[in-house]
Simulated assay, not measured.
Amino acid sequence: MTRQIYLNDRFVAEAEARISLFDRGFLFGDGVYEVSAVIGRRLVDNDLHLARLERSLGEIGIPMPLECRAIAEVQAELVRRNRIEEGVVYLQVTRGVAEREFTFSPALVPTFVGFTQQKRITNAVSARDGIAVGVVADQRWARRDIKSVMLLAQVLAKNAVKARGCQEAWLVEDGYVTEGASSTAYIVNADGVLVSRPNSHSVLPGCTKAAILQIASDAGLHVEERLFTVAEAQVAREVFLTSASSIVTPVVRVEDMAIGNGRPGALTMRLQQIYLELAMRGPALF
């Protein structure tokens, strides 16, 4: 089956999807994106993702291409047309098309693209067995709370740690972990306290993080939103990551240091189970 793409008010076959050479997303990285998970033919935490999309666009002065409800309809139609049982829906909005110039006209019409990717999420080996994390210096810009398409620093970080046998990179600034290259970082310390860095301009406000912290609160877990170091993580009881496309993923090694007994922690796996149970509530899209 030919994958269907949404591009500027139309659903088209993948081979027919074309964007101008002069799109500011291509020339300047002038745009933002969102990724929503599909589990059991259901969009997960999608209201949170659309709210973050609207916020990111507002922070850089790009208008929403459609209202949130209409965007959700586009996402649902992409899931149906492409028969996505499990995977992700990717959305990207750029400032639009114009001659290459650093300044821009407020009258530009945004370019809006959506597509799906099949991806194993619930039964992924990483979610079951855990992953290794490598550490690199955080070299990104100062507004990491905006989900910008400028991802070169993350690309370089992930490839650097891949060469060291790691599946994700932790970005570190001033001695503290900011976040993963494409995930939110957590530790569970020796006292059983769940620790994650608070939201600020330094980190992306994770949608899956919001859901996990709510689950933890409902379960009566002690949660602290504060900074932590790599050294603190390496002696933690458990370490894990969250993102839309990898849900709750155990971390069993940080650089060359095994976490706990080197296996996914019980609390991590319980949070993963509860999250998946909640994700499967509600009607499927097809």
Rank of each mutant, 00 (worst) to 15 (best):
V125G: 06
L204G: 06
H201D: 10
V172M: 07
A219W: 13
L151R: 13
V177F: 04
D174P: 01
K119E: 09
S183W: 07
V155R: 09
A142P: 12
S182C: 10
E179P: 00
A132H: 09
K158G: 09
R100I: 10
F102P: 07
G130S: 13
F104D: 02
K209W: 05
V135M: 07
V203T: 10
S126Y: 14
A169I: 00
G134Y: 09
D174K: 12
R144E: 01
G206R: 03
A210C: 08
V97T: 14
A157E: 02
T122D: 04
G130I: 12
V125A: 15
H201Q: 12
S202P: 00
K119P: 03
E173K: 15
A219C: 14
F112P: 01
G180I: 00
C166H: 06
F104S: 09
E85C: 05
N123L: 14
Q139W: 11
S217R: 15
A124C: 11
S182F: 09
S105Y: 06
A211Y: 05
A127L: 15
Q167W: 03
D174I: 02
G134V: 11
V125T: 14
G180S: 05
V88W: 06
I187G: 02
L204E: 05
G220Q: 08
S202W: 02
V172K: 06
P110K: 01
A127T: 14
V135H: 07
G96Q: 05
A157C: 11
A216F: 10
G114F: 02
P110T: 00
S126T: 15
L108A: 05
T111N: 05
A153S: 15
G114K: 04
R120K: 14
S148T: 14
E173F: 08
V133P: 00
L152S: 10
R164E: 15
K158S: 04
Y176N: 13
F104I: 03
Q118C: 13
V89W: 12
G134E: 12
Q154S: 13
V113A: 05
A211Q: 09
L213S: 07
S202G: 09
I212D: 00
P106D: 11
P198A: 02
V193S: 05
R100N: 09
W141L: 04
F112R: 03
E85F: 09
C166K: 06
R128Y: 11
G175K: 04
V97E: 11
W170S: 01
D218C: 11
T184Q: 08
P205Y: 02
V133S: 03
S182W: 06
V172F: 08
T178I: 01
A157W: 01
V136L: 11
A107L: 07
L204F: 15
A169H: 01
I146K: 02
A190P: 02
E173Q: 13
A219E: 15
S202R: 10
A163F: 12
D191G: 11
L151I: 10
V136G: 09
P198T: 02
S148L: 06
L151T: 09
L171P: 02
V89T: 13
V125H: 12
V133A: 15
A142T: 13
S200D: 06
L171N: 04
Q118E: 15
S183C: 10
A169W: 02
M150G: 11
I215Y: 08
I131Y: 07
E99Y: 12
A157I: 01
S148M: 04
V113T: 08
L204C: 12
G130D: 11
V97F: 07
H201V: 07
G192R: 12
S182N: 10
L204R: 08
R144Y: 02
T122R: 13
S196P: 04
E101L: 12
